[in-house]
Design a protein around this nucleic acid. Structure first.
Lengths: 246, 246
DNA sequence: CGTGCATTTGAGAAGAATCAATGCCCGTGG
DNA sequence: CCACGGGCATTGATTCTTCTCAAATGCACG
């Protein structure tokens, strides 16, 4: 249970110094605990703050007029939540705690001031935003052009990879802290169909489950089903960082 | 047929001065003409330049391993193409000319230098990136949680709105410079089904077509079918711009 | 030991894909 | 001028995937 904001995501472009990482951490207000299944910030809210997710899983979602909901992203510790809202006057996406969660709030003005002072900081935010955009592109491709079982395979592979990075998965084994209905809302499927496809993956020996524990015993098999190659972002940000330094 | 890069998109956050807009225009190299259905830049290419779309329609797409393709965005004149690739070492998305197209190429280094010199310029890129991210979120929601006919309604409303902004649509009337197959690749549908749903919309009096001309005679009706409310981004970017100025 | 949420299962319906033709428009070459 | 071919749109018949509705099971928790 780490209670200080983890730096995984901040280091991904290797462009921030330790001091800068400390500065971001310092931006965050006191830790706020949010109970499971509670809104951190609701959609349409005028609270355009950004939240640093210190601990627990959260999700960002969007409501449709027909009453359906699309989950935009499953957020893990170290993620920066709600940053899209900097471009509009009301929060685009709702933020909900999936598990008990700890966040630190960063007012937009504080972020603005830091970015103004440090061009590298702004460059980091820009690269980070582009990276989120890529993640969305990938998911749009899953949802638009892959079968239910392929989407599920993509989801599990992606989740495993992200959890491994933050030490919440080992040997392709992790805890699923998300319900099948929520997975459905991420992938554009119903809970019932998610269930059937999970059982199908299990039957084929591609996953193993016991309670909320998940294991991926056959990664090549899963990758084979998944429609898209997982992409690794070896980010070479020198073109921007060096310019910002000059 | 405008051949200088249009400034619609550059003005959307009201944060760039005329001089800055001129500076962006100046970044672009000589106009490059690209024939219809030709790649501007292919997926996976090491060319990480950015392209300013001066004239014509283009699209950004992603190939899946199963041979399918997901179209990520339909680009109109004034759009900035390919900027996601700044965060990775190979181009994420392929760029293709949908009609005869004119682009101006901006090397990443030139963009980096401009952004380093002008924090407002970088702020603009950041806000613009967030806005694209929102557009992707909306589309993920259409594709994930709306029926075929609702997706089509969303698409037509969105296209009409964007075309109106650049003067290529008047009185909800515009030219569709995209095939039904391509629309399908955007919305996660087959060309056949796109056709059926278009005819259904026509039958219900929600659209009128003759050749490639499209008219939307019943906007309220279309909006009623479309699942998501169209969002307008009244961007208040003062929190960032003023900070960058200080 | 209920109570409430999540998962599981079944049966049937609906939505969209697939397969296969046909028609239409338009540019090209004879 | 007209036949021809290619790309796109249209249509029908059929199949397949996924949803819907409904009910049962299991499980955690007070």
């Amino acid at each position: 249970m780490q209670k200080s904001y983890p730096s995984f995501r901040l280091r991904e472009f290797a462009c921030l110094s330790d001091g800068e990482i400390e500065a971001i951490r310092a931006l965050g207000g006191p830790p706020i605990d949010v109970a499971k299944n509670t809104a951190i910030r609701s959609e349409g809210s005028t609270d355009r703050s950004i939240y640093l997710l210190t601990d627990g899983w959260a999700l960002s979602s969007l409501l449709l007029r027909n009453g359906e909901r699309q989950i935009l992203k499953l957020h893990l510790p170290g993620d920066i939540l709600g940053s899209t809202s900097m471009a509009v006057d009301r929060a685009i996406d709702g933020l909900t705690a999936l598990t008990p969660v700890t966040v630190r709030k960063v007012p937009l003005e504080a972020l603005g001031a830091l970015m103004a002072k440090s061009p590298r900081m702004m460059a980091f935010m820009l690269l980070s935003c582009q990276k989120e955009r890529i993640a969305l592109m990938d998911r749009l491709a899953w949802v638009g052009r892959a079968t239910a079982i392929a989407r599920l395979a993509c989801f599990l592979l992606d989740l495993n990879e992200r959890l491994t990075l933050i030490g919440q998965a080992r040997d392709d084994r992790f805890e699923m802290r998300i319900t099948q209905e929520q997975v459905g809302d991420m992938l554009g499927l119903t809970a019932v169909h998610v269930n059937r496809m999970l059982r199908e993956l299990e039957r084929r020996g591609l996953i193993e489950r016991s309670g909320s524990n998940m294991r991926l015993p056959d990664m090549p098999g899963l990758r084979n089903i998944a429609a898209v190659p997982s992409r690794r972002m070896a980010a070479d940000a020198n073109w921007l960082i060096e310019a910002a330094d000059a």
